[in-house]
Design a protein around this nucleic acid. Structure first.
Lengths: 338, 338
DNA sequence: ATATTTTGTGTAAGGGCTTACAAATTAAAT
DNA sequence: ATTTAATTTGTAAGCCCTTACACAAAATAT
C-alpha cells in the first residue's frame, strides 16, 4: 500500500495525497476528507524511508553516551529524549563506552544515518584532548553537535554545562570553613567535567591557603558501580596511614563508598568524617545518613540543550554556551557552617 | 556527493560503486581498489535514506520502555542496545511513560518508522489486559515484537522472562521457613510481572497454610524514586497498628525504603525486621545493611532476547518463550535458614 | 582456434515520497 | 458576462540508492 494506491482509491493525484498527509493548507476540505477516509480505511502510513529521502531528514537525533545504565547518564537520556519527542524528534541511542575509537565510531555512525543533530551526553564523553576535538569537529561539519556537561569552541557545536568548577570550589570551601582541612578529594574520571571539578577543589585550597597534599587527591580506578570497591580502596588508604576528615567526591557513588567505609571502621559521620557527593542522585537518599551532594541542575540543562537544538534546527540563532550553577544540597553527611 | 559522483570519478558505473559499497564478491580487486580510493578521498558515505528505501530496512530496532532512567530499565536498555549494536543494528529509543495511549502511540511511531523489530522493555510496559494485547498484536502484524519480562501468546511476539512467580514464592518461603509469618508484601506495580510476583507470595502463604491478611499486601502509589515516601508510608502503616516482621518488596527501591523505616524507628534489621528486595540492583549495595534481593538474571535475559531477535530477523525459527529462574541473593537484611 | 563457462560491468527500472511548475477550477472584481 | 485573481489539483522531475538482466571480458574446456 503506497501513495499511488491511495490516490487511485480516492480519485485524486499523488500530489494531493501527499498534501493531505503533510497538512498542506492548499487542499479543499472536501478533498481532504475524501482522502483521509481512504487513508484511515486502509490504515495507510507513508513510507518513512521515502519520506526521509525526499525531505533529507527523518527527524531523528542521535544520542551518544558512554553508558546508558549509569545513574546520572540515564537520567540525562530520559530528559533529553522526552524533550525531543515533544518536539517531534526521535532518538537513536548508542552507548559508546569509554574507549576512544568506539566513541569516534559511534559518532560516525550517527552521521552516516543522517541524523539531524548529535547530542553527546555526559562529560565522560568528552576527553578534552585534540583527538576528540578533531572528530567532534568533523561531525559538526555535517550536523550540529550538542554537548551536555562539556565545552568546546567550535562552529556548530553547542554546550550546556554546569559550572562544576565553581560548584566543587564552593563545596570544598564549605568544608574548609567549617574547620576541616584534611579533605580527601576522590574522583574516578579524567573527563572534561572531572578536570573542572578537580580544579575547583584545588582552587578552594589555594584560596584558603591550604597545602594540597598530593595523596589527598585520589583517583579510583574501579567500576562505576562498585561501591564496595570504593570502600576497600579507602580502607587501604587508611591502612597506609593517610589521615582525612572529609571526603569530597566527584560522584555520589564514591561518596556512598565513603559512607560505607566510615561505618565499617566505626567512624562517626559527620562528626569524625564529612562526606560530600556530586549529582545529588538516588544514592544520596538511599544511604544512611543521607549524603550531602551537589545538585548540578541536570533537568534544566537537558531542557536548555534540547531547546537550543530545536532552535538550531529551525534555523534560529542560538547561544553556543549555556552555563548553570550547581548547588550544594545539605544533608546528613556534613555539618557545615553557613 | 552521491554515488553518481563517485562512479564518474572512478570511471565505473554506479552499479559497480554500489557493489563495492556492499561488499559484493563480484568485483575485480583492481576495480574495487580504484573505487575505494575515490570513496576514501571524498569521504563519501551512502545516503542512508536511499539505502533504506531500496532495501526496505535501515537496520534499526525500536526500544520502548516506560522510563529509561529507572535503575532496572536503564540496565536493560544498556544490555539490549549493546547486543544489538554488535549485530549491526541501531536502536531507536523512546520512553512511553506508564500511560496507555502514550504506549500505543510509541508503538505506532516505531512501526511508522519501519523499524525491523520492536523491543518492549520491562514488564511495566505490558499491562496484560486486552487493550494492550490488541495494540501489541497490531504491531506484531507489521514487525516482530520482543518482550522483556512479560509474556504473551501471539504470533510474531517473542518473550524472555524471569520466572518471577517462582522467585517470589521462594523468597516468601525462605522467610516463612525461618520462622517469620507476619510478612508485609509491598509492591508498586500492577504490571505483568507485578502480578506474577504477588501470585508467588500468595502461593507461598497457601503452601505453608498461612492466612493472607489483606492488609499485609500493600500497594505503594508514590514515585519510583521516592525512598523517603516509602519510609513514610510504612511509618503510617505502623501507626495504624499493622504488625509485620518482614517486608517482601517487589522492587529494591521499596526495600530500601523499608530499611530506612526500620532505622528511623529503631527497629533492628534483621533481628526485628527482615527485608527482601527484587532486582538486586545498586541500591542493595548502597544500603546498610545490604539488602537481600532477588537476582532476576537481567543480563542473560537481554542477551537471549536479542539473540532471538536476530534469529527471527535472519529468518530462523526461534522459540517464542525463554524463561530463566530468579535467584535469592542473601545479604544483610535477612537471617534465613538454609 | 573455437566453443563454453565463469567472472565482471553497465543499463535501466524500480522503491515511495516531495514539490516546482503548469493547468484547471472557482471566486471576486469590473 | 467577462476579466482577473485566488484557490485547488495534476504532471513530472527529482531524491539516491539496489538489483535484475543483458552484455562484455576473461578464463577454461574442447
Amino acid at each position: 500500500m503506497n501513495i499511488y494506491d491511495i490516490s487511485k482509491q480516492a480519485g485524486v493525484s499523488i500530489a494531493t495525497v501527499s498534501r493531505v498527509l503533510n497538512g498542506s493548507p492548499n487542499v479543499k476540505p472536501s478533498t481532504r476528507r475524501k482522502v483521509m477516509d481512504i487513508i484511515d480505511q486502509y490504515g495507510y502510513t507513508p513510507n518513512a524511508f521515502a519520506r526521509g529521502l525526499g525531505l533529507d531528514t527523518m527527524n531523528s537525533i542521535g544520542i551518544i553516551c558512554a553508558d546508558s545504565s549509569d545513574l546520572y547518564l540515564s537520567k540525562a537520556i530520559y530528559y533529553i529524549e522526552g524533550n525531543l519527542r515533544k518536539n517531534g524528534y526521535n532518538c537513536i541511542l548508542t552507548c559508546s563506552g569509554y574507549n576512544h575509537d568506539d566513541k569516534e565510531a559511534a559518532l560516525a555512525m550517527m552521521i552516516n544515518r543522517r541524523v539531524d543533530a548529535v547530542i553527546l551526553v555526559g562529560s565522560n564523553y568528552i576527553e578534552a584532548d585534540d583527538e576528540t576535538n578533531r572528530y567532534i569537529m568533523n561531525a559538526a561539519a555535517q550536523s550540529p553537535v550538542f554537548l551536555l556537561n562539556a565545552s568546546m569552541d567550535c562552529p556548530n557545536v553547542f554546550c550546556a554545562t554546569c559550572d562544576d568548577f565553581k560548584a566543587m570550589q564552593d563545596a570544598a570551601l564549605a568544608l574548609i570553613d567549617s574547620g576541616i582541612t584534611d579533605i580527601l578529594y576522590l574522583y574516578n574520571s579524567h573527563s572534561y567535567s572531572g578536570r573542572r571539578k578537580l580544579g575547583g577543589y584545588r582552587s578552594a585550597c589555594e584560596i584558603r591557603k591550604l597545602d594540597i597534599a598530593q595523596d589527598l587527591m585520589q583517583f579510583y580506578e574501579g567500576s562505576h558501580e562498585d561501591i564496595d570497591g570504593v570502600c576497600r580502596f579507602l580502607c587501604g588508604l587508611r591502612a597506609q596511614g593517610l589521615v582525612f576528615r572529609a571526603v569530597l567526591a566527584s560522584e555520589d557513588m564514591l561518596a556512598a563508598g565513603a559512607v560505607k567505609y566510615a561505618k565499617k571502621n566505626g567512624i562517626a559521620i559527620p562528626d569524625e568524617l564529612s562526606v560530600i557527593g556530586y549529582n545529588n542522585s538516588l544514592l544520596t537518599t538511599c544511604s544512611d545518613p543521607e549524603i550531602t551532594s551537589v545538585d548540578n541542575k541536570l533537568e534544566a540543562l537537558c531542557f536548555q540543550l534540547v531547546r537550543t537544538c530545536i532552535g538550531v534546527l529551525n534555523g534560529e540563532k542560538m547561544p553556543p554556551k549555556i552555563i548553570y550553577s550547581g548547588e550544594l544540597v545539605h544533608k546528613g553527611t556534613t555539618r557545615l557552617v553557613h
